[in-house]
Protein backbone atom coordinates (compact mmCIF):
# COMPACT_ATOMS: atom_id res chain seq x y z
CA UNK A 1 0.00 0.00 0.00
CA UNK A 2 2.85 2.33 0.92
CA UNK A 3 4.50 1.59 -2.43
CA UNK A 4 1.23 2.31 -4.22
CA UNK A 5 0.86 5.62 -2.37
CA UNK A 6 4.44 6.55 -3.26
CA UNK A 7 3.73 5.79 -6.91
CA UNK A 8 0.60 7.95 -6.83
CA UNK A 9 2.57 10.76 -5.19
CA UNK A 10 5.30 10.51 -7.83
CA UNK A 11 2.68 10.54 -10.56
CA UNK A 12 1.09 13.61 -9.00
CA UNK A 13 4.45 15.35 -8.83
CA UNK A 14 5.15 14.56 -12.46
CA UNK A 15 1.71 15.81 -13.42
CA UNK A 16 2.23 19.01 -11.47
CA UNK A 17 5.60 19.48 -13.15
CA UNK A 18 4.07 19.03 -16.56
CA UNK A 19 1.14 21.33 -15.75
CA UNK A 20 3.46 23.97 -14.32
CA UNK A 21 5.42 23.95 -17.55
CA UNK A 22 2.43 24.59 -19.76
CA UNK A 23 2.31 28.00 -21.36
CA UNK A 24 5.56 29.54 -20.12
CA UNK A 25 8.58 29.94 -22.41
CA UNK A 26 10.70 26.88 -21.77
CA UNK A 27 14.44 27.35 -21.78
CA UNK A 28 16.96 24.51 -21.75
CA UNK A 29 20.33 25.42 -20.25
CA UNK A 30 23.27 23.07 -20.62
CA UNK A 31 26.73 23.59 -19.15
CA UNK A 32 29.48 21.33 -20.41
CA UNK A 33 31.31 21.00 -17.09
CA UNK A 34 29.73 22.58 -14.03
CA UNK A 35 32.57 21.57 -11.75
CA UNK A 36 34.37 24.51 -13.36
CA UNK A 37 33.24 27.55 -11.38
CA UNK A 38 32.92 29.77 -14.43
CA UNK A 39 30.53 27.37 -16.12
CA UNK A 40 28.45 27.00 -12.98
CA UNK A 41 28.24 30.78 -12.68
CA UNK A 42 27.24 31.00 -16.31
CA UNK A 43 24.54 28.32 -16.19
CA UNK A 44 23.13 29.34 -12.83
CA UNK A 45 22.86 32.98 -13.88
CA UNK A 46 21.12 32.06 -17.12
CA UNK A 47 18.65 30.00 -15.10
CA UNK A 48 18.08 32.80 -12.57
CA UNK A 49 17.65 35.49 -15.24
CA UNK A 50 15.20 33.34 -17.18
CA UNK A 51 13.15 32.66 -14.08
CA UNK A 52 12.91 36.43 -13.49
CA UNK A 53 11.06 36.57 -16.82
CA UNK A 54 8.68 33.87 -15.63
CA UNK A 55 10.23 31.27 -17.92
CA UNK A 56 10.47 27.61 -17.11
CA UNK A 57 14.13 26.65 -17.02
CA UNK A 58 15.92 23.37 -16.84
CA UNK A 59 19.64 23.39 -16.11
CA UNK A 60 21.67 20.34 -17.16
CA UNK A 61 25.31 19.49 -16.52
CA UNK A 62 27.22 17.31 -18.98
CA UNK A 63 29.97 16.53 -16.44
CA UNK A 64 32.59 17.25 -19.09
CA UNK A 65 31.50 14.23 -21.16
CA UNK A 66 31.02 14.73 -24.90
CA UNK A 67 28.43 11.99 -25.38
CA UNK A 68 26.45 13.13 -22.33
CA UNK A 69 26.34 16.64 -23.78
CA UNK A 70 25.12 15.30 -27.12
CA UNK A 71 22.44 13.18 -25.42
CA UNK A 72 21.24 16.09 -23.31
CA UNK A 73 20.92 18.31 -26.38
CA UNK A 74 19.03 15.54 -28.21
CA UNK A 75 16.72 15.09 -25.22
CA UNK A 76 15.95 18.81 -24.99
CA UNK A 77 15.22 18.90 -28.73
CA UNK A 78 12.85 15.97 -28.35
CA UNK A 79 11.23 17.68 -25.38
CA UNK A 80 10.55 20.62 -27.69
CA UNK A 81 11.97 23.41 -25.55
CA UNK A 82 11.40 26.92 -26.88
CA UNK A 83 15.06 27.87 -26.75
CA UNK A 84 18.46 26.70 -25.57
CA UNK A 85 21.42 28.53 -24.04
CA UNK A 86 24.62 26.51 -23.85
CA UNK A 87 27.62 27.32 -21.70
CA UNK A 88 31.03 26.37 -23.10
CA UNK A 89 29.68 23.96 -25.69
CA UNK A 90 31.58 22.73 -28.76
CA UNK A 91 30.18 23.62 -32.19
CA UNK A 92 32.11 21.08 -34.29
CA UNK A 93 31.46 18.10 -32.05
CA UNK A 94 27.78 18.91 -31.67
CA UNK A 95 27.17 20.09 -35.19
CA UNK A 96 24.53 17.37 -35.68
CA UNK A 97 22.63 18.45 -32.56
CA UNK A 98 22.83 22.15 -33.44
CA UNK A 99 21.51 21.36 -36.91
CA UNK A 100 18.70 19.27 -35.43
CA UNK A 101 17.75 22.15 -33.13
CA UNK A 102 17.73 24.54 -36.07
CA UNK A 103 15.55 22.17 -38.11
CA UNK A 104 13.19 21.86 -35.13
CA UNK A 105 12.93 25.66 -34.97
CA UNK A 106 14.65 25.89 -31.59
CA UNK A 107 16.86 28.99 -31.31
CA UNK A 108 20.25 28.33 -29.71
CA UNK A 109 22.58 30.89 -28.17
CA UNK A 110 25.99 29.72 -26.99
CA UNK A 111 28.29 31.30 -24.44
CA UNK A 112 32.08 31.08 -24.84
CA UNK A 113 31.68 28.16 -27.21
CA UNK A 114 32.62 29.32 -30.69
CA UNK A 115 30.45 30.09 -33.68
CA UNK A 116 28.22 27.67 -35.55
CA UNK A 117 26.14 28.22 -38.68
CA UNK A 118 23.24 26.55 -36.88
CA UNK A 119 23.13 28.80 -33.80
CA UNK A 120 22.11 32.44 -33.45
CA UNK A 121 25.48 33.63 -32.14
CA UNK A 122 28.11 33.09 -29.49
CA UNK A 123 28.34 35.48 -26.54
CA UNK A 124 32.00 35.71 -25.64
CA UNK A 125 34.83 37.94 -24.55
CA UNK A 126 37.63 38.33 -27.07
CA UNK A 127 40.13 35.74 -25.88
CA UNK A 128 42.99 37.28 -27.88
CA UNK A 129 42.50 40.70 -26.30
CA UNK A 130 42.23 39.28 -22.77
CA UNK A 131 45.24 37.04 -23.21
CA UNK A 132 47.46 39.84 -24.45
CA UNK A 133 46.36 42.11 -21.57
CA UNK A 134 47.18 39.44 -18.98
CA UNK A 135 50.53 38.54 -20.54
CA UNK A 136 51.69 42.11 -20.98
CA UNK A 137 50.57 42.95 -17.42
CA UNK A 138 52.58 40.01 -16.03
CA UNK A 139 55.73 41.05 -17.86
CA UNK A 140 55.17 44.66 -16.91
CA UNK A 141 54.94 43.72 -13.24
CA UNK A 142 58.40 42.12 -13.64
CA UNK A 143 59.86 45.15 -15.46
CA UNK A 144 60.10 42.95 -18.55
CA UNK A 145 62.97 40.87 -17.20
CA UNK A 146 63.42 37.69 -15.19
CA UNK A 147 61.99 34.20 -15.30
CA UNK A 148 58.46 32.86 -15.41
CA UNK A 149 56.59 29.58 -14.99
CA UNK A 150 53.56 28.82 -17.13
CA UNK A 151 50.50 26.71 -16.34
CA UNK A 152 48.63 25.95 -19.56
CA UNK A 153 45.50 24.05 -20.60
CA UNK A 154 45.61 22.90 -24.21
CA UNK A 155 42.36 20.98 -24.56
CA UNK A 156 40.11 24.00 -24.06
CA UNK A 157 40.01 26.32 -27.04
CA UNK A 158 39.86 29.55 -25.04
CA UNK A 159 42.61 28.50 -22.65
CA UNK A 160 44.74 27.34 -25.57
CA UNK A 161 44.39 30.72 -27.29
CA UNK A 162 45.45 32.41 -24.06
CA UNK A 163 48.56 30.25 -23.94
CA UNK A 164 49.47 30.87 -27.56
CA UNK A 165 49.04 34.63 -27.24
CA UNK A 166 51.23 34.55 -24.13
CA UNK A 167 53.88 32.68 -26.13
CA UNK A 168 53.81 35.44 -28.74
CA UNK A 169 54.20 38.12 -26.06
CA UNK A 170 57.11 36.19 -24.53
CA UNK A 171 58.74 35.74 -27.91
CA UNK A 172 58.76 39.51 -28.37
CA UNK A 173 60.35 39.94 -24.94
CA UNK A 174 63.31 37.53 -24.91
CA UNK A 175 64.72 39.02 -21.71
CA UNK A 176 61.95 37.15 -19.93
CA UNK A 177 62.75 33.42 -19.89
CA UNK A 178 60.36 30.53 -19.43
CA UNK A 179 61.91 28.27 -16.80
CA UNK A 180 59.24 25.64 -17.09
CA UNK A 181 55.66 25.01 -18.07
CA UNK A 182 53.05 22.47 -17.11
CA UNK A 183 50.06 21.65 -19.26
CA UNK A 184 46.95 20.45 -17.52
CA UNK A 185 45.85 17.23 -19.16
CA UNK A 186 43.16 15.69 -17.01
CA UNK A 187 39.83 17.50 -16.98
CA UNK A 188 37.96 15.54 -14.34
CA UNK A 189 40.64 15.69 -11.67
CA UNK A 190 42.28 18.84 -12.93
CA UNK A 191 42.88 20.35 -9.50
CA UNK A 192 45.08 17.41 -8.56
CA UNK A 193 46.84 17.57 -11.92
CA UNK A 194 47.66 21.27 -11.51
CA UNK A 195 48.80 20.86 -7.92
CA UNK A 196 51.13 17.98 -8.75
CA UNK A 197 52.60 19.57 -11.87
CA UNK A 198 53.13 23.03 -10.47
CA UNK A 199 54.41 21.79 -7.09
CA UNK A 200 57.18 20.01 -8.96
CA UNK A 201 58.02 23.06 -11.09
CA UNK A 202 57.97 25.45 -8.14
CA UNK A 203 60.22 23.17 -6.08
CA UNK A 204 62.58 22.65 -8.99
CA UNK A 205 62.93 26.38 -9.66
CA UNK A 206 62.62 27.76 -6.12
CA UNK A 207 63.96 31.31 -5.86
CA UNK A 208 64.61 31.61 -9.59
CA UNK A 209 61.28 32.87 -10.94
CA UNK A 210 59.54 36.19 -10.54
CA UNK A 211 56.27 35.51 -12.31
CA UNK A 212 53.69 32.79 -12.93
CA UNK A 213 51.06 32.83 -15.63
CA UNK A 214 48.03 30.52 -15.40
CA UNK A 215 45.54 29.97 -18.18
CA UNK A 216 42.53 30.35 -15.88
CA UNK A 217 41.89 31.45 -12.35
CA UNK A 218 41.03 28.01 -10.97
CA UNK A 219 44.62 27.02 -11.71
CA UNK A 220 45.96 30.27 -10.25
CA UNK A 221 44.18 29.68 -6.94
CA UNK A 222 45.87 26.29 -6.59
CA UNK A 223 49.24 27.78 -7.51
CA UNK A 224 48.72 30.56 -4.98
CA UNK A 225 48.19 27.94 -2.26
CA UNK A 226 51.40 26.16 -3.27
CA UNK A 227 53.36 29.42 -3.22
CA UNK A 228 52.02 30.30 0.20
CA UNK A 229 52.90 26.83 1.50
CA UNK A 230 56.41 27.46 0.14
CA UNK A 231 56.70 30.49 2.42
CA UNK A 232 56.55 33.16 -0.26
CA UNK A 233 55.04 36.56 0.49
CA UNK A 234 53.07 39.01 -1.60
CA UNK A 235 55.42 40.79 -3.98
CA UNK A 236 57.89 37.89 -4.18
CA UNK A 237 56.15 36.52 -7.26
CA UNK A 238 53.64 38.04 -9.61
CA UNK A 239 50.74 35.65 -10.30
CA UNK A 240 48.45 36.59 -13.18
CA UNK A 241 45.55 34.78 -14.74
CA UNK A 242 42.20 35.20 -16.48
CA UNK A 243 38.51 34.72 -15.58
CA UNK A 244 37.66 36.70 -12.43
CA UNK A 245 35.46 35.80 -9.49
CA UNK A 246 35.01 36.79 -5.86
CA UNK A 247 37.67 34.41 -4.52
CA UNK A 248 40.27 35.74 -6.94
CA UNK A 249 39.35 39.34 -6.16
CA UNK A 250 39.62 38.61 -2.43
CA UNK A 251 43.08 37.15 -2.95
CA UNK A 252 44.24 40.13 -5.01
CA UNK A 253 43.25 42.21 -1.98
CA UNK A 254 44.71 39.71 0.54
CA UNK A 255 48.19 40.81 1.76
CA UNK A 256 49.22 37.15 2.20
CA UNK A 257 48.32 36.05 -1.31
CA UNK A 258 50.51 36.06 -4.41
CA UNK A 259 47.52 36.64 -6.69
CA UNK A 260 48.39 39.85 -8.49
CA UNK A 261 45.90 40.39 -11.30
CA UNK A 262 43.22 38.76 -13.40
CA UNK A 263 41.22 39.70 -16.45
CA UNK A 264 37.65 39.50 -15.19
CA UNK A 265 35.18 38.02 -17.62
CA UNK A 266 31.68 39.20 -16.77
CA UNK A 267 30.06 35.74 -16.93
CA UNK A 268 26.98 37.00 -15.13
CA UNK A 269 26.62 39.85 -17.65
CA UNK A 270 27.14 37.43 -20.54
CA UNK A 271 24.52 35.09 -19.14
CA UNK A 272 22.05 37.93 -18.58
CA UNK A 273 22.74 39.27 -22.08
CA UNK A 274 22.07 35.81 -23.55
CA UNK A 275 18.69 35.61 -21.85
CA UNK A 276 17.81 39.15 -22.89
CA UNK A 277 18.77 38.38 -26.50
CA UNK A 278 16.79 35.14 -26.45
CA UNK A 279 13.75 37.10 -25.26
CA UNK A 280 14.12 39.77 -27.92
CA UNK A 281 14.53 37.24 -30.72
CA UNK A 282 12.38 34.27 -29.69
CA UNK A 283 9.62 36.06 -27.76
CA UNK A 284 9.50 39.64 -29.08
CA UNK A 285 10.23 38.55 -32.65
CA UNK A 286 13.10 40.95 -33.33
CA UNK A 287 15.47 40.17 -36.16
CA UNK A 288 18.74 38.60 -35.02
CA UNK A 289 20.70 40.49 -37.68
CA UNK A 290 19.53 43.83 -36.25
CA UNK A 291 20.72 42.88 -32.78
CA UNK A 292 23.92 40.97 -33.52
CA UNK A 293 25.16 41.31 -37.10
CA UNK A 294 27.80 38.57 -36.99
CA UNK A 295 28.35 35.20 -35.36
CA UNK A 296 29.77 36.74 -32.17
CA UNK A 297 28.49 39.11 -29.52
CA UNK A 298 31.71 40.31 -27.90
CA UNK A 299 31.55 41.34 -24.24
CA UNK A 300 34.42 43.44 -22.87
CA UNK A 301 36.49 42.07 -19.98
CA UNK A 302 38.36 44.18 -17.40
CA UNK A 303 41.84 43.78 -16.00
CA UNK A 304 41.58 43.75 -12.20
CA UNK A 305 44.53 44.39 -9.88
CA UNK A 306 45.04 46.08 -6.51
CA UNK A 307 44.18 49.47 -7.99
CA UNK A 308 40.61 48.63 -8.92
CA UNK A 309 39.79 45.41 -7.10
CA UNK A 310 37.51 47.18 -4.61
CA UNK A 311 35.10 47.94 -7.42
CA UNK A 312 34.67 44.22 -8.03
CA UNK A 313 34.61 42.86 -4.48
CA UNK A 314 31.09 42.31 -3.17
Amino acid sequence: MKKFNALIAAAGLAGALAAGQAGAFELGVVAFQMSAETQARCANTVGAEAEKLGWTTQVLNSNGALETHASQLDNLIQKGVDGMILCMSKPVQFDAQFLAAKEAGIPVITISSGASPHTLFDVTPNEYVMASEAAVYLLGSMNFEGNVLLQKFESNTGARIRGEVTDVVLKENPQVKVLGEHSMARTKSWQDDVRNGMSALILQNAGNFQGIWASFDGQALIIDDILRESGLKKGDVSLVSIDGGQEVFARIKDPESMMTATVAIPFEDMAAKSVDMMKQIAVDGKDKADLVPGPYLFIPATLVDKTNVDQFLK
Partner: peptide
Protein backbone atom coordinates in the same frame (compact mmCIF):
# COMPACT_ATOMS: atom_id res chain seq x y z
CA UNK B 1 30.47 4.84 -33.11
CA UNK B 2 31.37 7.53 -30.60
CA UNK B 3 33.97 9.10 -32.87
CA UNK B 4 31.62 8.92 -35.86
CA UNK B 5 28.80 10.44 -33.83
CA UNK B 6 30.81 13.33 -32.41
CA UNK B 7 33.28 13.87 -35.25
CA UNK B 8 35.98 14.11 -32.65
CA UNK B 9 38.16 12.03 -30.37
CA UNK B 10 39.30 13.09 -26.91
CA UNK B 11 41.41 11.28 -24.32
CA UNK B 12 38.61 10.86 -21.77
CA UNK B 13 35.61 10.87 -24.05
CA UNK B 14 34.20 7.59 -22.72
CA UNK B 15 34.93 8.32 -19.07
CA UNK B 16 31.28 8.75 -18.14
CA UNK B 17 30.43 5.30 -19.44
Amino acid sequence: FLVANLSSAAPQMAGDF
